[in-house]
Amino acid sequence: MHAFSYHKPSTLGDALSLVAKQSEGKILAGGQSLVQAMKLRLASPTDLIDLSGIKDLAGIKVEGSSVTIGAMTRHADVENNADVKKMIPALARLAGGIGDRQVRHMGTIGGSVANSDPAACYPAAVLGLGATIVTNKRKIAADDFFKGLFETALETGELITAVTFPTVKRAGYIKFKNPASRFALVGVFVAETSGGVRVAVTGAASCVFRATAIEKALTAKFDPDAVPADTIKADTLNADLHGSAEYRAHLITVMAKRAVTQAVGK
């Protein structure tokens, strides 16, 4: 790890001005992705601006039929939150399946979403539920947020403050774990929302994406057997030691079926 300066602002305003001042600096949330990259010397920010001192950024609020989760809310807090468990159980379950206990007590939703790791779990929920990413500047619809491999719509100096999830009729998330890293080799989030069925796939490609053919079939009939096989072309998918593109394409179908089974509570 290279040397860096550490800052712990207690207001969002202070954080933003530090971010503006330190062009080679980085925001530190739970550090579960960033610190690893720094240890491997893949990232060497001059400054770390730790958001954990900003009280307003953490916490879960229910407003009407939506749940707003502050950017600095830890995975474990989402996993164990009574409102989330009641209103969007698939989201609580997803959070509870991220990494291990230590990771879940440090990692944050803001960090995960901002990072847009192709194998991360949260992006599948954000896109699958049609959530809204709230930043210090604007609100961004999930459909417009994830742009590519570790790439999002966030601009320089823009900071996620919260993510707002609408409650949905029913939803399910199944992750097929990469045996080594236990990130998603393929993760499928299905949700029956007021605006129709949404199916988001993570782990399989360079970035989370919606499986529109499966959405269409499930809109006609929200049932595991309705999930069509082989709707995703293998040549658009990732291939690595643990999963060829062909295997991933197959797993998308299997995981989608299982996610629907979970959603319908069979």
Binding site: A180, S181, L241, H242
Partner: peptide, 8 residues
Amino acid sequence: TGSYMDYT
């Protein structure tokens, strides 16, 4: 398989 991300 140079790290625990790939070596199980």
